[in-house]
Design a protein around this nucleic acid. Structure first.
Lengths: 161, 161
DNA sequence: AGGACAGGGTTTCGTCAAGCAACTGAATGC
DNA sequence: GCATTCAGTTGCTTGACGAAACCCTGTCCT
């Protein structure tokens, strides 16, 4: 029963979830999408156990969702980049983001907003720019902190202090 | 560490995944969406362990994603229905379905197609009807077996025999 | 030159969740 | 009276996750 398989399931949703349905996997993809590329960065950002992160990264590289590129030798150091297949997970992430914002909203508003790089419009739950109407991909969009972030940040400071 | 939490994550994707990111959860939602409403139906359809199914259904009802309705008393029997919140997961499921179809395609084509009930057009990865251009929701769409299903069904028969 | 530190992992170990099988309890069919 | 169905629950075993320690290579500080 390796890799959280769903035997007997014919549906493509099940096939997708066999790959990206493991715990942490989608969050890693999201993190790489936002620009975290190195092991330590991901580990700190996610608070994931290092062995689990190591296993997930290997799996994601095997599945051709991430690409591992050396940025120096001696000692060998690598960065992880999204492949086309990985970037194509963007609509699913956007849908989950929108669902979370709609059904468990922060009182102050969403912590992150997705905006269309070219025109600055907000992006809908379908990954479509609400200003210009274009159907977007991962490359067309950018995350910006939303009104909900400030509140959480204050909260964080209080707990850390 | 109940319920697969992702502590310290501010993003709404993480919040969503705390609820629907557990193993089996999204497949249960999909199954209920396709019309499986009873415990035994879900269990047979998914091949999930009964105790796990029981736990997931409870959680989904708590989270207001499913609703549990009695359809008889003595003995008490229930059916599970999607709430609005549950139905709203449709775009995420469609995105995952499309991703699976695109990046791990069956040689014979997708096993399931999503079509717009009103006009019969196929539905894109963004949940938009490719014929009439309408942005759809769970209620507007229907699953139909696709060309890939026949091949798998034959396969199944061979293994079962 | 020696020690502290960082970056990127791997190893070890304990805990918790998933899978399997058996059991319950009420009703239904034969 | 016995087997079967439905919807779960209970108990046991295996496997995955989390935390911490360890490893190796190289750099910085003094």
């Amino acid at each position: 029963m390796l890799h959280h398989e769903y035997p007997g399931q014919i549906c493509s949703i099940a096939k997708s979830l066999e790959v990206v349905g493991e715990r942490w996997t989608l969050l890693i993809v999201r993190d790489v999408m936002t620009g975290h590329r190195r092991f330590g960065e991901l580990q700190r950002s996610l608070g994931i156990a290092r062995n689990v992160l190591s296993a997930r990264l290997q799996r994601l590289v095997e599945e051709d969702i991430l690409e591992r590129r050396a940025y120096q030798e001696n000692p060998p150091r690598h960065e992880y980049f999204l492949t086309e297949k990985g970037l194509d997970l963007w609509p699913a992430l956007i849908a989950l983001l929108a669902w979370g914002d709609r059904h468990s909203p922060q009182p102050e508003g969403p912590p992150m907003l997705i905006v269309h790089k070219q025109c600055g419009g907000e992006v809908s739950d379908r990954g479509i720019c609400e200003r210009c109407g274009e159907t977007l991909t991962a490359r067309d969009a950018r995350q910006v902190p939303g009104p909900g972030l400030a509140a959480v940040a204050v909260d964080e400071a209080a707990t850390t202090a």
